[in-house]
Design a protein around this nucleic acid. Structure first.
Lengths: 221, 221
DNA sequence: TCAAACTCTCAGCAAAATCTAAGCATTTAT
DNA sequence: ATAAATGCTTAGATTTTGCTGAGAGTTTGA
Protein backbone atom coordinates (compact mmCIF):
# COMPACT_ATOMS: atom_id res chain seq x y z
CA UNK A 1 0.00 0.00 0.00
CA UNK A 2 1.51 3.31 -1.07
CA UNK A 3 0.54 6.46 0.76
CA UNK A 4 1.45 10.05 -0.03
CA UNK A 5 1.67 12.55 2.81
CA UNK A 6 1.43 16.22 1.84
CA UNK A 7 2.37 18.23 4.90
CA UNK A 8 4.68 21.21 5.23
CA UNK A 9 5.45 20.73 8.92
CA UNK A 10 8.40 18.39 8.81
CA UNK A 11 7.93 17.25 12.33
CA UNK A 12 4.43 15.99 11.70
CA UNK A 13 5.29 14.69 8.26
CA UNK A 14 8.16 12.64 9.55
CA UNK A 15 6.22 11.35 12.50
CA UNK A 16 3.48 10.12 10.19
CA UNK A 17 5.95 8.63 7.75
CA UNK A 18 7.84 6.82 10.46
CA UNK A 19 4.71 5.48 12.10
CA UNK A 20 3.05 4.32 8.91
CA UNK A 21 6.22 2.66 7.72
CA UNK A 22 6.30 0.75 10.94
CA UNK A 23 2.90 -0.57 9.91
CA UNK A 24 4.52 -1.56 6.62
CA UNK A 25 2.91 1.01 4.40
CA UNK A 26 5.14 2.57 1.75
CA UNK A 27 5.14 6.27 2.47
CA UNK A 28 6.32 9.24 0.44
CA UNK A 29 6.32 12.74 1.81
CA UNK A 30 5.91 16.04 0.04
CA UNK A 31 6.49 19.23 1.99
CA UNK A 32 5.01 21.39 -0.69
CA UNK A 33 1.46 21.61 -2.02
CA UNK A 34 2.00 21.85 -5.75
CA UNK A 35 4.77 19.30 -5.64
CA UNK A 36 2.50 16.98 -3.71
CA UNK A 37 -0.32 17.33 -6.20
CA UNK A 38 2.07 16.50 -9.01
CA UNK A 39 3.24 13.37 -7.24
CA UNK A 40 -0.27 12.27 -6.43
CA UNK A 41 -1.26 12.42 -10.09
CA UNK A 42 2.00 11.09 -11.49
CA UNK A 43 2.25 8.06 -9.24
CA UNK A 44 -0.40 5.64 -8.25
CA UNK A 45 -0.94 6.13 -4.54
CA UNK A 46 -3.56 4.14 -2.70
CA UNK A 47 -4.23 7.09 -0.49
CA UNK A 48 -3.31 10.73 0.07
CA UNK A 49 -3.04 12.36 3.47
CA UNK A 50 -3.36 16.06 2.94
CA UNK A 51 -2.74 18.97 5.26
CA UNK A 52 -5.45 21.58 5.13
CA UNK A 53 -3.14 24.54 5.74
CA UNK A 54 -0.23 24.65 3.36
CA UNK A 55 2.06 27.65 2.91
CA UNK A 56 1.16 28.41 -0.69
CA UNK A 57 -1.97 26.63 -1.72
CA UNK A 58 -4.98 25.69 0.35
CA UNK A 59 -5.37 21.99 0.92
CA UNK A 60 -8.99 22.33 -0.12
CA UNK A 61 -7.92 23.57 -3.51
CA UNK A 62 -5.54 20.66 -3.95
CA UNK A 63 -8.21 18.23 -2.94
CA UNK A 64 -10.66 19.66 -5.48
CA UNK A 65 -8.00 19.66 -8.15
CA UNK A 66 -7.15 16.04 -7.47
CA UNK A 67 -10.76 14.99 -7.78
CA UNK A 68 -11.15 16.99 -10.99
CA UNK A 69 -8.17 15.11 -12.34
CA UNK A 70 -9.84 11.80 -11.64
CA UNK A 71 -7.91 10.87 -8.56
CA UNK A 72 -10.23 8.24 -7.11
CA UNK A 73 -8.50 6.88 -4.07
CA UNK A 74 -9.20 8.03 -0.52
CA UNK A 75 -8.07 11.43 0.67
CA UNK A 76 -7.66 12.05 4.39
CA UNK A 77 -7.57 15.69 5.40
CA UNK A 78 -5.60 17.00 8.37
CA UNK A 79 -6.40 20.31 9.96
CA UNK A 80 -5.77 22.47 12.96
CA UNK A 81 -9.28 23.85 12.87
CA UNK A 82 -12.15 22.24 14.59
CA UNK A 83 -15.14 24.06 13.22
CA UNK A 84 -17.87 21.96 11.74
CA UNK A 85 -17.92 24.36 8.84
CA UNK A 86 -14.35 23.46 7.97
CA UNK A 87 -15.12 19.83 8.16
CA UNK A 88 -18.02 20.22 5.79
CA UNK A 89 -15.85 22.25 3.44
CA UNK A 90 -13.23 19.54 3.42
CA UNK A 91 -15.69 16.79 2.77
CA UNK A 92 -17.40 18.83 0.07
CA UNK A 93 -14.07 19.24 -1.66
CA UNK A 94 -13.89 15.50 -2.00
CA UNK A 95 -12.05 14.38 1.10
CA UNK A 96 -13.15 11.05 2.53
CA UNK A 97 -12.30 11.72 6.13
CA UNK A 98 -11.09 14.44 8.37
CA UNK A 99 -8.78 14.56 11.37
CA UNK A 100 -8.07 17.54 13.61
CA UNK A 101 -4.64 18.28 15.03
CA UNK A 102 -3.25 17.43 17.39
CA UNK A 103 -4.10 13.78 17.09
CA UNK A 104 -2.65 10.65 18.60
CA UNK A 105 -0.98 8.50 16.02
CA UNK A 106 -3.27 5.60 16.70
CA UNK A 107 -6.23 7.73 15.70
CA UNK A 108 -4.68 8.48 12.36
CA UNK A 109 -3.87 4.84 11.92
CA UNK A 110 -7.42 3.80 12.62
CA UNK A 111 -8.74 6.13 9.94
CA UNK A 112 -6.12 5.11 7.42
CA UNK A 113 -7.08 1.52 8.00
CA UNK A 114 -10.73 2.26 7.67
CA UNK A 115 -10.23 4.14 4.41
CA UNK A 116 -8.02 1.49 2.90
CA UNK A 117 -10.27 -1.30 3.96
CA UNK A 118 -11.33 -3.29 0.96
CA UNK A 119 -14.25 -5.66 0.81
CA UNK A 120 -12.00 -8.70 0.62
CA UNK A 121 -9.90 -7.59 3.55
CA UNK A 122 -11.50 -8.70 6.72
CA UNK A 123 -10.77 -6.01 9.21
CA UNK A 124 -10.87 -7.29 12.71
CA UNK A 125 -12.74 -4.97 14.99
CA UNK A 126 -12.31 -7.24 17.94
CA UNK A 127 -8.82 -7.80 19.21
CA UNK A 128 -8.22 -10.93 21.24
CA UNK A 129 -5.37 -12.14 23.34
CA UNK A 130 -5.91 -15.18 25.46
CA UNK A 131 -9.12 -14.65 27.40
CA UNK A 132 -9.01 -10.88 26.89
CA UNK A 133 -10.97 -9.18 24.16
CA UNK A 134 -11.25 -5.58 23.05
CA UNK A 135 -13.97 -4.27 20.76
CA UNK A 136 -12.95 -1.19 18.84
CA UNK A 137 -16.46 -0.44 17.71
CA UNK A 138 -18.22 -0.50 21.02
CA UNK A 139 -15.17 0.29 23.15
CA UNK A 140 -15.93 -2.72 25.29
CA UNK A 141 -13.26 -4.75 26.97
CA UNK A 142 -13.87 -8.15 28.50
CA UNK A 143 -11.86 -10.79 30.24
CA UNK A 144 -13.36 -14.21 30.88
CA UNK A 145 -16.71 -12.64 29.90
CA UNK A 146 -16.48 -10.03 32.63
CA UNK A 147 -16.81 -6.47 31.39
CA UNK A 148 -13.99 -4.09 32.26
CA UNK A 149 -14.48 -0.35 32.12
CA UNK A 150 -11.53 1.72 31.00
CA UNK A 151 -10.92 5.41 30.51
CA UNK A 152 -10.13 6.50 26.98
CA UNK A 153 -6.39 6.73 27.57
CA UNK A 154 -6.36 3.32 29.15
CA UNK A 155 -8.33 2.01 26.20
CA UNK A 156 -5.97 3.54 23.66
CA UNK A 157 -2.97 2.17 25.49
CA UNK A 158 -4.44 -1.31 25.73
CA UNK A 159 -5.38 -1.23 22.06
CA UNK A 160 -1.85 -0.33 21.10
CA UNK A 161 -0.42 -3.05 23.29
CA UNK A 162 -2.84 -5.63 21.95
CA UNK A 163 -2.06 -4.75 18.38
CA UNK A 164 1.58 -5.47 19.11
CA UNK A 165 1.52 -8.67 21.10
CA UNK A 166 4.75 -10.44 21.98
CA UNK A 167 6.75 -7.40 21.12
CA UNK A 168 8.61 -5.10 23.43
CA UNK A 169 7.38 -1.54 23.18
CA UNK A 170 9.54 1.21 24.61
CA UNK A 171 8.00 4.06 26.54
CA UNK A 172 8.92 6.36 23.69
CA UNK A 173 7.08 4.09 21.28
CA UNK A 174 4.06 4.17 23.49
CA UNK A 175 4.10 7.94 23.92
CA UNK A 176 4.44 8.44 20.17
CA UNK A 177 1.48 6.22 19.40
CA UNK A 178 -0.95 6.73 22.21
CA UNK A 179 -0.46 10.40 23.05
CA UNK A 180 -0.91 13.41 20.78
CA UNK A 181 2.18 14.00 18.70
CA UNK A 182 2.97 17.24 20.48
CA UNK A 183 2.16 15.98 23.94
CA UNK A 184 4.87 16.49 26.50
CA UNK A 185 4.43 13.57 28.83
CA UNK A 186 7.02 11.99 31.06
CA UNK A 187 7.98 8.36 30.75
CA UNK A 188 6.64 8.02 34.26
CA UNK A 189 3.17 8.77 32.96
CA UNK A 190 3.36 5.64 30.88
CA UNK A 191 4.40 3.73 33.98
CA UNK A 192 1.40 5.07 35.81
CA UNK A 193 -0.99 4.06 33.04
CA UNK A 194 0.57 0.65 32.78
CA UNK A 195 -0.09 0.42 36.50
CA UNK A 196 -3.74 1.38 36.01
CA UNK A 197 -4.14 -1.22 33.28
CA UNK A 198 -2.53 -3.93 35.35
CA UNK A 199 -4.93 -3.14 38.17
CA UNK A 200 -7.88 -3.61 35.86
CA UNK A 201 -6.63 -6.24 33.45
CA UNK A 202 -4.34 -8.54 35.36
CA UNK A 203 -4.93 -8.06 39.06
CA UNK A 204 -8.62 -9.08 39.22
CA UNK A 205 -7.86 -12.28 37.32
CA UNK A 206 -5.24 -14.06 39.37
CA UNK A 207 -6.12 -17.37 37.71
CA UNK A 208 -5.17 -16.18 34.23
CA UNK A 209 -1.56 -15.39 33.56
CA UNK A 210 -0.57 -11.70 33.56
CA UNK A 211 -0.63 -10.24 30.06
CA UNK A 212 1.47 -7.15 30.69
CA UNK A 213 5.09 -7.79 31.49
CA UNK A 214 7.99 -5.41 32.00
CA UNK A 215 11.23 -5.73 30.08
CA UNK A 216 13.46 -3.72 32.33
CA UNK A 217 15.60 -1.25 30.43
CA UNK A 218 13.54 -1.68 27.27
CA UNK A 219 9.80 -1.35 27.78
CA UNK A 220 6.63 -3.39 28.02
CA UNK A 221 5.13 -6.40 26.42
CA UNK B 1 27.87 9.24 1.27
CA UNK B 2 29.22 12.61 2.39
CA UNK B 3 28.33 13.88 5.85
CA UNK B 4 29.07 17.25 7.40
CA UNK B 5 29.45 17.47 11.17
CA UNK B 6 29.02 20.92 12.72
CA UNK B 7 30.15 20.68 16.33
CA UNK B 8 32.36 22.98 18.37
CA UNK B 9 33.49 20.40 20.90
CA UNK B 10 36.52 18.93 19.18
CA UNK B 11 36.48 15.79 21.23
CA UNK B 12 32.94 14.92 20.22
CA UNK B 13 33.44 16.07 16.64
CA UNK B 14 36.48 13.88 16.17
CA UNK B 15 34.85 10.90 17.81
CA UNK B 16 31.93 11.18 15.41
CA UNK B 17 34.20 11.69 12.43
CA UNK B 18 36.34 8.71 13.30
CA UNK B 19 33.40 6.46 13.94
CA UNK B 20 31.53 7.39 10.80
CA UNK B 21 34.63 7.04 8.68
CA UNK B 22 35.05 3.57 10.04
CA UNK B 23 31.61 2.91 8.57
CA UNK B 24 32.95 4.25 5.29
CA UNK B 25 31.12 7.54 5.23
CA UNK B 26 33.08 10.56 3.99
CA UNK B 27 33.06 13.02 6.85
CA UNK B 28 33.96 16.69 7.06
CA UNK B 29 33.97 18.59 10.31
CA UNK B 30 33.31 22.22 10.99
CA UNK B 31 33.98 23.60 14.47
CA UNK B 32 32.19 26.82 13.77
CA UNK B 33 28.55 27.55 13.03
CA UNK B 34 28.78 30.08 10.25
CA UNK B 35 31.60 28.24 8.62
CA UNK B 36 29.57 25.05 8.79
CA UNK B 37 26.55 26.65 7.20
CA UNK B 38 28.70 27.91 4.36
CA UNK B 39 30.13 24.47 3.75
CA UNK B 40 26.74 22.82 3.85
CA UNK B 41 25.44 25.13 1.14
CA UNK B 42 28.61 25.19 -0.94
CA UNK B 43 29.16 21.46 -1.06
CA UNK B 44 26.71 18.75 -1.67
CA UNK B 45 26.43 16.79 1.55
CA UNK B 46 24.02 13.91 1.86
CA UNK B 47 23.45 14.79 5.48
CA UNK B 48 24.30 17.37 8.12
CA UNK B 49 24.82 16.56 11.79
CA UNK B 50 24.33 19.77 13.70
CA UNK B 51 25.04 20.64 17.30
CA UNK B 52 22.24 22.57 18.92
CA UNK B 53 24.46 24.71 21.16
CA UNK B 54 27.21 26.46 19.25
CA UNK B 55 29.36 29.26 20.65
CA UNK B 56 28.17 32.02 18.33
CA UNK B 57 25.02 31.01 16.55
CA UNK B 58 22.21 28.78 17.74
CA UNK B 59 21.97 25.49 15.89
CA UNK B 60 18.27 26.15 15.44
CA UNK B 61 19.05 29.30 13.50
CA UNK B 62 21.45 27.46 11.26
CA UNK B 63 18.94 24.75 10.66
CA UNK B 64 16.26 27.24 9.67
CA UNK B 65 18.68 29.10 7.45
CA UNK B 66 19.69 25.91 5.69
CA UNK B 67 16.10 25.04 4.97
CA UNK B 68 15.41 28.54 3.72
CA UNK B 69 18.32 28.13 1.37
CA UNK B 70 16.79 24.98 -0.04
CA UNK B 71 19.01 22.50 1.67
CA UNK B 72 16.86 19.38 1.29
CA UNK B 73 18.89 16.54 2.73
CA UNK B 74 18.46 15.18 6.24
CA UNK B 75 19.58 17.20 9.24
CA UNK B 76 20.27 15.42 12.50
CA UNK B 77 20.34 17.66 15.54
CA UNK B 78 22.47 17.02 18.62
CA UNK B 79 21.60 18.57 21.93
CA UNK B 80 22.29 18.52 25.61
CA UNK B 81 18.72 19.33 26.47
CA UNK B 82 16.15 16.70 27.08
CA UNK B 83 12.80 18.44 27.11
CA UNK B 84 10.29 17.50 24.49
CA UNK B 85 9.76 21.23 24.01
CA UNK B 86 13.33 21.50 22.76
CA UNK B 87 12.86 18.53 20.54
CA UNK B 88 9.79 20.11 19.03
CA UNK B 89 11.69 23.34 18.46
CA UNK B 90 14.40 21.48 16.64
CA UNK B 91 12.02 19.54 14.47
CA UNK B 92 10.00 22.67 13.75
CA UNK B 93 13.16 24.33 12.52
CA UNK B 94 13.39 21.62 9.91
CA UNK B 95 15.55 18.97 11.53
CA UNK B 96 14.66 15.40 10.66
CA UNK B 97 15.77 13.74 13.82
CA UNK B 98 17.10 14.60 17.21
CA UNK B 99 19.62 13.00 19.56
CA UNK B 100 20.34 14.04 23.13
CA UNK B 101 23.83 14.04 24.58
CA UNK B 102 25.39 12.03 25.87
CA UNK B 103 24.71 9.27 23.41
CA UNK B 104 26.42 6.01 22.60
CA UNK B 105 27.97 6.04 19.18
CA UNK B 106 25.86 3.12 18.04
CA UNK B 107 22.77 5.20 18.66
CA UNK B 108 24.02 7.94 16.41
CA UNK B 109 24.91 5.37 13.81
CA UNK B 110 21.44 3.87 13.89
CA UNK B 111 19.87 7.26 13.26
CA UNK B 112 22.30 8.17 10.52
CA UNK B 113 21.49 4.90 8.83
CA UNK B 114 17.77 5.45 9.20
CA UNK B 115 17.96 8.96 7.75
CA UNK B 116 20.09 7.92 4.81
CA UNK B 117 18.02 4.86 4.14
CA UNK B 118 16.66 4.83 0.66
CA UNK B 119 13.42 3.08 -0.23
CA UNK B 120 15.18 0.31 -2.12
CA UNK B 121 17.64 -0.43 0.64
CA UNK B 122 16.34 -3.12 2.89
CA UNK B 123 17.42 -2.50 6.41
CA UNK B 124 18.01 -5.73 8.22
CA UNK B 125 16.46 -5.70 11.64
CA UNK B 126 17.56 -9.19 12.52
CA UNK B 127 21.23 -9.92 12.92
CA UNK B 128 22.32 -13.54 12.60
CA UNK B 129 25.51 -15.39 13.30
CA UNK B 130 25.43 -19.14 13.19
CA UNK B 131 22.55 -20.29 15.35
CA UNK B 132 22.39 -16.97 17.20
CA UNK B 133 19.94 -14.25 16.22
CA UNK B 134 19.28 -10.76 17.52
CA UNK B 135 16.14 -8.80 16.69
CA UNK B 136 16.57 -5.05 17.01
CA UNK B 137 12.85 -4.39 16.75
CA UNK B 138 11.63 -6.62 19.50
CA UNK B 139 14.90 -6.71 21.47
CA UNK B 140 14.79 -10.47 21.40
CA UNK B 141 17.85 -12.68 21.30
CA UNK B 142 17.67 -16.39 20.54
CA UNK B 143 20.08 -19.25 20.17
CA UNK B 144 18.87 -22.54 18.74
CA UNK B 145 15.35 -21.19 19.20
CA UNK B 146 15.83 -20.65 22.91
CA UNK B 147 15.10 -17.13 24.11
CA UNK B 148 17.89 -15.36 25.97
CA UNK B 149 17.16 -12.38 28.17
CA UNK B 150 19.76 -9.65 28.25
CA UNK B 151 20.05 -6.32 30.01
CA UNK B 152 20.23 -3.29 27.76
CA UNK B 153 24.01 -2.94 28.05
CA UNK B 154 24.50 -6.59 27.28
CA UNK B 155 22.17 -6.19 24.33
CA UNK B 156 24.04 -3.17 22.99
CA UNK B 157 27.37 -4.92 23.37
CA UNK B 158 26.16 -8.04 21.60
CA UNK B 159 24.68 -5.97 18.81
CA UNK B 160 27.99 -4.24 18.26
CA UNK B 161 29.89 -7.52 18.27
CA UNK B 162 27.44 -9.12 15.87
CA UNK B 163 27.61 -6.21 13.51
CA UNK B 164 31.36 -6.71 13.31
CA UNK B 165 31.79 -10.46 13.05
CA UNK B 166 35.21 -11.97 12.43
CA UNK B 167 36.87 -8.75 13.35
CA UNK B 168 38.98 -8.05 16.37
CA UNK B 169 37.52 -5.25 18.47
CA UNK B 170 39.67 -3.63 21.10
CA UNK B 171 38.26 -2.70 24.44
CA UNK B 172 38.66 0.94 23.49
CA UNK B 173 36.66 0.31 20.34
CA UNK B 174 33.96 -1.29 22.35
CA UNK B 175 33.84 1.47 24.93
CA UNK B 176 33.66 4.11 22.21
CA UNK B 177 30.75 2.42 20.48
CA UNK B 178 28.68 0.90 23.20
CA UNK B 179 29.08 3.40 26.02
CA UNK B 180 28.18 7.09 25.99
CA UNK B 181 30.96 9.12 24.48
CA UNK B 182 31.70 10.82 27.78
CA UNK B 183 31.47 7.69 29.86
CA UNK B 184 34.56 6.96 31.87
CA UNK B 185 34.60 3.21 32.14
CA UNK B 186 37.51 0.97 32.82
CA UNK B 187 38.63 -1.69 30.37
CA UNK B 188 37.80 -4.11 33.10
CA UNK B 189 34.16 -3.19 32.77
CA UNK B 190 34.23 -4.51 29.24
CA UNK B 191 35.80 -7.70 30.52
CA UNK B 192 33.02 -8.05 33.02
CA UNK B 193 30.33 -7.57 30.39
CA UNK B 194 32.03 -9.97 28.03
CA UNK B 195 31.92 -12.40 30.92
CA UNK B 196 28.18 -11.80 31.41
CA UNK B 197 27.58 -12.36 27.72
CA UNK B 198 29.58 -15.56 27.60
CA UNK B 199 27.59 -16.86 30.54
CA UNK B 200 24.37 -16.26 28.65
CA UNK B 201 25.41 -16.80 25.04
CA UNK B 202 28.07 -19.49 25.02
CA UNK B 203 28.00 -21.34 28.31
CA UNK B 204 24.43 -22.71 28.11
CA UNK B 205 25.10 -24.06 24.62
CA UNK B 206 28.10 -26.37 24.98
CA UNK B 207 27.19 -28.16 21.75
CA UNK B 208 27.55 -25.05 19.61
CA UNK B 209 30.98 -23.57 19.24
CA UNK B 210 31.73 -20.49 21.34
CA UNK B 211 31.08 -17.28 19.43
CA UNK B 212 33.05 -14.92 21.63
CA UNK B 213 36.78 -15.45 21.57
CA UNK B 214 39.57 -13.48 23.15
CA UNK B 215 42.50 -12.15 21.18
CA UNK B 216 44.90 -11.62 23.99
CA UNK B 217 46.52 -8.23 23.89
CA UNK B 218 44.08 -6.99 21.27
CA UNK B 219 40.48 -7.54 22.12
CA UNK B 220 37.49 -9.69 21.29
CA UNK B 221 35.98 -11.35 18.31
C1' DT C 1 -22.68 24.68 38.87
C1' DC C 2 -20.83 21.23 41.23
C1' DA C 3 -19.15 16.69 41.82
C1' DA C 4 -17.15 12.91 39.82
C1' DA C 5 -14.00 11.11 36.67
C1' DC C 6 -9.92 11.54 34.23
C1' DT C 7 -5.16 12.95 33.20
C1' DC C 8 -0.84 13.74 34.60
C1' DT C 9 3.09 14.82 37.91
C1' DC C 10 5.67 14.04 41.94
C1' DA C 11 8.11 11.74 45.73
C1' DG C 12 9.80 7.84 47.97
C1' DC C 13 10.50 3.05 48.03
C1' DA C 14 12.13 -1.39 45.93
C1' DA C 15 14.49 -3.93 42.65
C1' DA C 16 17.52 -4.46 38.94
C1' DA C 17 21.32 -2.99 36.26
C1' DT C 18 25.70 -1.02 36.11
C1' DC C 19 30.24 -0.50 37.34
C1' DT C 20 34.46 -0.98 40.32
C1' DA C 21 37.76 -3.40 42.90
C1' DA C 22 40.40 -7.14 44.34
C1' DG C 23 42.07 -11.70 43.97
C1' DC C 24 42.79 -15.52 40.97
C1' DA C 25 44.01 -17.74 36.44
C1' DT C 26 46.27 -17.88 32.19
C1' DT C 27 49.40 -16.46 28.74
C1' DT C 28 53.69 -14.16 27.33
C1' DA C 29 58.36 -12.75 27.65
C1' DT C 30 62.75 -13.21 29.59
C1' DA D 1 60.97 -21.59 35.04
C1' DT D 2 59.47 -17.50 36.65
C1' DA D 3 57.93 -12.74 36.64
C1' DA D 4 54.99 -9.60 34.42
C1' DA D 5 51.08 -8.64 31.93
C1' DT D 6 46.62 -9.56 30.56
C1' DG D 7 42.20 -11.52 31.15
C1' DC D 8 38.53 -13.68 34.18
C1' DT D 9 35.45 -13.91 38.12
C1' DT D 10 33.02 -12.74 42.26
C1' DA D 11 31.18 -9.64 45.54
C1' DG D 12 29.23 -5.63 46.63
C1' DA D 13 28.72 -0.34 46.30
C1' DT D 14 26.44 2.89 43.46
C1' DT D 15 23.24 4.36 40.09
C1' DT D 16 19.31 3.78 37.35
C1' DT D 17 14.76 2.25 36.46
C1' DG D 18 10.17 0.98 37.58
C1' DC D 19 6.18 0.91 40.77
C1' DT D 20 2.82 3.05 43.69
C1' DG D 21 -0.05 6.29 46.50
C1' DA D 22 -1.28 10.93 46.89
C1' DG D 23 -2.83 14.85 44.97
C1' DA D 24 -3.16 19.07 41.65
C1' DG D 25 -5.33 20.52 37.63
C1' DT D 26 -8.63 19.67 34.01
C1' DT D 27 -12.67 17.90 31.70
C1' DT D 28 -17.27 15.90 31.66
C1' DG D 29 -21.83 15.41 32.61
C1' DA D 30 -25.86 15.46 35.63
Amino acid sequence: MRILVVEDDRKIANAIKKGLEQESYAVDVSFDGMDGMGSALAFDYDMVILDRMLPEVDGIKICEALRKNKYKNPILMLTAKDKIKDRVEGLDAGADDYLTKPFAFEELLARVRALLRRPHQIQEDILRLGDLSLNRQTFEVERTDKKISLSSKEFALLEYLMRNPNRILTKDNIIAHVWDYDADVLPNTVEVYIGYLRNKIDKPFPKSKPLISTARGFGYR
